[in-house]
Design a protein around this nucleic acid. Structure first.
Lengths: 150, 150
DNA sequence: CAGAAAACCAACTAAAACGATAGGAATTAA
DNA sequence: TTAATTCCTATCGTTTTAGTTGGTTTTCTG
């Protein structure tokens, strides 16, 4: 029941972009360095995020990536869905294209998986990148030595 | 972010045992047949559940397995924890023995993972095997042709 | 007492997923 | 023109998953 590094690294990168929102395109290398992630691997992840419309890119020198929307308009759920696929611990209750199960309507197990899925959805959709930035600001204010993102 | 078959098959088997609670030891073969799971594979899973104290066994002919506690005293969370390990989508926020993270206290990501973890915990700990049996009974009452468990 | 039913146990394995790495082509600012 | 940067495709070693194989031991029943 673990997230892969896709989800972890991807959200980390998105948070980095959110912190740097409004400062023009951010080169991937700088994100990779700050967050200590392989640049080449991160590249694959950000490509997915770009295709999902969460990030836009500027090619060439001085290029980089930036959020495609305001941090307040991107939720943790948006990012995780893009990278990890539709939410749901079990295929038969995925948000999108659930795998049909012959036993179908009267499945008690299904109720359980749905309840868990819904509680995850509720959590991930209730947190925006802006919320995370706000929290970072709050901590920055209350502490001398501070590390932005991790 | 998927459950492995351990969690799925394991909960299915536990539900089967809950439905048959009070009827003496249930041979694994009958569970495997009803639920259409490889008997040998299920054997490995039920061993884990036994070691976790959720199931007890009776050896020899006419032997089998039964719940070690009343269905009302076993939650979905108990079963999933035994089979899938401590709950948490990310190692640094596992319920048990979270992996230390150097960046530590000021990690904003951590807040996110904790919130998701807690919502999953809330969901899985709020459902008991008895709840599932009750739901099965309710459906049985309201329908002619009924399939117990799946 | 023999035989069958069942739990118990250890080792192996094919396939998939994971977490990258390698190497280059295309684009663009300076 | 050159350096910075995105974009793209392929490959690869390791780990995990989802079993399978082949037994041993225990215990009920006839």
């Amino acid at each position: 029941m673990k997230l892969s590094t896709k989800g972890r690294y991807g959200l980390t990168a998105m948070f980095d972009l959110a912190i740097n929102y409004g400062r023009g395109p951010i080169p991937l290398k700088s994100i990779a360095d700050r967050q200590n992630i392989s640049e080449h691997y991160l590249e694959q992840l950000i490509m997915i995020l770009r295709k999902a419309g969460l990030v836009k890119s500027v090619r060439g020198a001085q290029g980089g990536y930036m959020l495609a929307k305001k941090p307040s308009e991107i939720t943790v759920g948006d990012v995780l869905r893009a990278l990890e696929g539709p939410i749901g611990l079990v295929d038969c209750v995925l948000e999108q294209d659930p795998v049909e199960c012959d036993k179908a309507e009267n499945c008690i197990m299904r109720l359980v998986w749905e309840k868990i899925r819904d509680s995850i959805i509720q959590a991930v959709d209730s947190i925006t990148l802006q919320d995370m930035c706000d929290e970072a600001e709050k901590r920055k204010a209350s502490q001398e030595s501070y590390m932005y993102y991790i």
